[in-house]
Amino acid sequence: MTYRSGTPANVEALDRPDKVAATLVRLRRMVSWHVIAPPLVFFAILLVVGIANPAYLGPFGISIATTSAAPILLVALGQAMVLNTGSIDLSNAAIALFGAIIFALTIPDAGIVAMIAVLIVLTLIGAVNGAILAYTQVPSFALTLGTLGILQTAALVTSGSETIYVSENRDLVTALHTIKVLSVPLTFWIGVFAAIFFWALLRFTIIGQNMTAVGKNESGAILSAVPNKQAKIIAFAISGFASGLAGLAIVAQAGSASASGLGSNLLLPGIAAALVGGTSISGGQANPINVVFGALTVAFVPIAAQALGFGAQAQSLVYGIFIIVIVALTTSRTRGAVIK
């Protein structure tokens, strides 16, 4: 077994009966590259944009960036939790859009009760995804590709292929978008709180520890009596729940929902945000707090491209190159080399 660069120094420090040194080692471990890379990359882009066009750093710029980042952040958080268990959820954006339509249909009649009930239903849809995965062992990529199609049809049918406007109780839901704290809309704050919650879940609970263990090494986890089916079902349920919040964010922002409108293009930005946030696509590595920076970066790249004067035609090109470079920068390469 080879030790990586840096490790012998850590060992040396630990051998000294010196508590300060030990604390330093722990600090250095916490501040490892894959932990600080996502925020670093975000602030670097922010700096570049700020130099090119200082207007973007004002309250208005922040408001635009976080508004467009909010639904991406919410689906990315669910995606990160699923990726962490070694699976992938291709249906999360479809759940979000289907959810948005159901929200728009039910909120006029039932208000807050509708919000809660729909969130529960969407969480259950996620859980069903997880249960099918756990018990039939259909690969998550194929399974969720299937549920993606089913949910798209469900979205079309329930909306009658039309845009559903929230006719009553409109202020109730748009308040999530219009109320801003520090120029940042509530929808984004919901994402931040969810990120902190999921981070704590992974770090401090048995369920979180089990989910990460399944993602790092499933057969090892099974032989350690880790309930691997439960871990997967919970991860997918979380993805359903987070997608539901994303659906709410969509309705809040647009005041309406349709199968082809705002939020119909969330799947890939969601995955990109999870990856830019340092989530490992092969499982076992996720930091929801960094996904916040991942989502901000992904939402900010088009704005940055515009600020730097790239033409409209070149935007997709710039976006694509940025994502590749950023993921290359933020991916943690320390794992995998040894384990898989």
Binding site: A213, N217, G220, L223, S224, G284, I339
Partner: peptide, 10 residues
């Protein structure tokens, strides 16, 4: 051991 006995990343 490495595959089944332990979680190497933990």
């Amino acid at each position: 051991r490495k595959v089944e006995g332990m979680i190497g990343g933990y």
